[in-house]
Design a protein around this nucleic acid. Structure first.
Lengths: 349, 349
DNA sequence: TTGAAAGCGCTAACAG
DNA sequence: CTGTTAGCGCTTTCAA
C-alpha cells in the first residue's frame, strides 16, 4: 500500500539525477536530452508520479485557480452559468473553486476571504440578494485581484481590475412589454423582486419605459413586489384579479412566478392569453412544457459564464497595474414569443 | 497600490516578533499572551493580511479541499447534488474543486489527474455515461485517497478507501410500476437509457420484477431504449402508439421523456391518465407544472450530495489504512403520485 | 546538458 | 510565553 506519493526528489534519487533536471524533463524543457527525458518519463509513469500543484503554485506564485461565488447552485440560471464558467476555465487550464453565499452577506464575506486565502488568481461573483454593503470587495480591489461581477453586480464599482458581465435586463423587459402592447394589452401588471438588485431594478425600468413610450399610463397598483416563485405568483395574481380593473396581461420578472400566475388565472376559469396574456423572464426549461407555452426572455446563461471567464483572462493577461477598467459587457437578451402571449396570430383557447 | 500581499514575515518584522509567534497568535494558540495576540490581530487587520493557504497546505500536507467530478452541471439532478456537496463541505471547512467530464471518459481521466495534482483530500465522482473502463481510478486507490462514487457508480469496485452513495433505483422503479398496476394498467411500457449504467439497469430491473411479481407478462416491444429527453420521449411514444396493442401506461426512467410522451399522447387526442397513465423519474421542478401533473420519483438529490460528503469525511477520520470498506449507502426514493397516473382516485379528464 | 542553492509562506518540533 | 530551525515539494536563477 504505497501511501506516500512519489516526489520529484524520489525520482531524482532513483535516477541519480537532480531534482531540477527531473522538473525540467517533465515540463519538456528544451535543454534536457531526449534520452534523459525518456528515462524520467518512464519512471514517473511507473511510480505514478503526481506533481504537487500546491508546491508548484506556491513557488510560482500562481495557483491556476479561479474562484466563483454564487448565491446558490440551484434552479436554472446559476447552474447554467457555473457550467459555462467551469467549461471555459477548464479550456484555459484553470481550476475552479466554487462557493455559495446562500443569499447571505455574511457568507459572502467569509467566502471572499476564503477564496483570497486560497490564492485564486481571479474571482467571479454574483451578489447575494441581501448585499447592500460592498466593503468586503475592497480587499479584493486592494490586492489588485481581477474581479468580475456577473448578473447581480455592484454598479459603479470602479477600480482598475474590476468589471462585470450582465444581461441587458432593461432591454429584455422593454421588449416583452412592447410585445404585450402590440398584442393589444393595455393594463399590464409587473411581478418584480426586490428593487435594490440591479436585475430587478432594470427590468422594472424597462417595463415602465415601454409603457410610457406607448402612451400607456402607469398604474402603481399593477406593480407587485412578490416572492419570485410559484406561490408568490399565485398570490400576487389573486390580488390583482380582485382589483376593480384587473390587468389584461402579466409581465413577471421570472418564469416561476409567471407559471404561478398562469395557474391561478386558469383556476379562475379565465383563458391565457385571451383574457390574460402572460410573459416571464429567464427561459427556464419548463417554459415549453406549460399549457399554453410560456413567452419568456432568454438570458444566455452559459454564454454569460463563458464571457465572464474570458473577461477575467483578459485582465489577467493585460499589463495588470494601472490600465483602464475594462468596460462591462452587456449581453443581448432574446425575446421568445410563445403561446401564452400570442393574442393576435394564433390565440390558443 | 499595494499589490504584494502581506506575509507572516512582514508582520513579524513590523512587530519585532518571530514568524512562529505571529502564526500562533493568528490561530489563537493558547500559549501566546493576550497582549501579543491583540497587537498581531490589529496589524493583520490593518495590512489586510491574508494567510496563504497554499503554503499552509503544503506544509501541513493537507489541502482542505475536496474534488468533485460530475458529468456536467446542467439539468436538475447534478446541480442539486453539487449544491448539497458544496453546502456540506463548507460546513466541514472544506473547499470544493469542481470538474466536469462532459460525459467523456477522456476528460474524466484528465480531471482525476488534475484533482490528484491539486492534492485534494478526497474525491466525489459520478461517472460519465461512456465510462466502461475504470483504470483511471486505480491511481486514486493506490494513493489511498478517499473516493466516493455517487449516483453513477462503479459496481464492485473494492478497496479500502472507496465507497458509494446511490439511490435505490430498483426500489423506486418497482414502486412506480406496482402503482401503475394498482391503477389498473396492464400493458406498461418502459423508456430507458443505456443499460450499462447502473441507474438504468436497476430501474429496468425494477420494472421487470414488478411486472412479474404481479403476474403480468413482459413484452419486449414495450421496452424502448431512447434518448432520455423530450424529443426522445415523443418519438418513442409515437412508435408505441403504432403497435397492434399499444400500451396503457408509460414508466419513463426520466421526467423529460415522460413529458414528451405526455405531449404526444395528448396530440393524438388521448387522455392522460385515462387512456394512458404516465410516470417519470427524478421529480424535476416541472413535474408540478404539466397538465396533468406528472407522477414521479424523488431522488433526494441534495441529500445524496450531503451524504456523500459525510461518507468521505468518515473515511478521512478513520484510521485510514487497512480498515474495512464502508458499505455503500443506499438512499430510499419517494414515489410521488400525481394526476398523470391516478386513474382510480381522481381521474382528470 | 546537468547540478547546486535558494526560497515561495507557512507550521511544528524543540529549546529556551 | 517566544524564538530557532528545519522543511513541505517545487521552480528557477546561476554556475559548471
Amino acid at each position: 500500500m504505497a501511501n506516500r506519493r512519489a516526489s520529484l526528489t524520489d525520482l531524482a534519487k532513483a535516477l541519480n539525477l537532480s531534482a531540477s533536471t527531473i522538473s525540467r524533463a517533465l515540463s519538456d524543457h528544451e535543454d534536457v536530452s531526449e534520452a534523459t527525458k525518456a528515462r524520467v518519463r518512464q519512471l514517473a509513469d511507473e511510480l505514478n508520479y503526481q506533481p504537487n500543484q500546491l508546491a508548484a503554485a506556491l513557488r510560482r506564485g500562481r495557483s491556476n485557480t479561479l474562484g466563483v461565488l454564487v448565491p446558490h447552485i440551484t434552479g436554472h440560471f446559476f447552474p447554467q452559468v457555473v457550467h459555462g464558467i467551469a467549461t471555459e476555465a477548464s479550456k484555459a487550464g484553470f481550476n475552479v473553486m466554487i462557493c455559495q453565499s446562500n443569499e447571505d452577506v455574511k457568507q459572502e464575506r467569509k467566502n471572499i476571504d476564503l477564496l483570497m486565502n486560497a490564492q485564486v488568481e481571479g474571482i467571479l461573483v454574483s451578489l447575494a440578494n441581501t448585499t447592500k454593503d460592498f466593503s468586503h470587495f475592497e480587499a479584493v480591489r486592494k490586492q489588485n485581484l481581477p474581479l468580475v461581477f456577473f448578473d447581480r453586480v455592484v454598479e459603479d464599482f470602479g477600480g482598475s481590475n474590476v468589471s462585470a458581465v450582465v444581461l441587458d435586463d432593461y432591454q429584455g423587459a422593454y421588449q416583452v412589454v412592447a410585445h404585450l402592447i402590440e398584442q393589444g394589452c393595455t393594463r399590464i401588471a409587473h411581478f418584480t423582486g426586490p428593487l435594490h438588485l440591479n436585475i430587478h431594478k432594470n427590468r422594472h425600468q424597462g417595463y415602465l419605459d415601454a409603457l410610457q413610450a406607448h402612451g400607456i399610463p402607469v398604474d402603481e397598483r399593477l406593480t407587485a413586489l412578490c416572492p419570485m416563485n410559484q406561490q408568490g405568483g399565485q398570490q400576487a395574481m389573486e390580488k390583482l384579479l380582485k382589483l376593480p380593473q384587473p390587468p389584461d396581461a402579466i409581465f413577471s420578472s421570472n418564469d416561476l412566478a409567471a407559471v404561478g400566475a398562469m395557474q391561478t388565472v386558469k383556476a379562475h376559469g379565465l383563458r391565457v392569453p385571451h383574457d390574460m396574456a402572460i410573459a416571464g423572464f429567464s427561459n427556464e426549461v419548463f417554459t415549453t412544457l406549460t399549457e399554453p407555452m410560456l413567452t419568456s426572455v432568454d438570458q444566455h446563461c452559459e454564454q454569460m459564464g463563458k464571457t465572464a471567464v474570458r473577461l477575467l483572462q483578459k485582465m489577467l493577461k493585460s499589463p495588470a497595474e494601472n490600465h483602464e477598467t475594462p468596460p462591462p459587457i452587456i449581453l443581448k437578451p432574446d425575446l421568445l414569443v410563445r403561446e401564452s402571449s400570442m393574442r393576435k396570430q394564433a390565440p390558443v383557447a
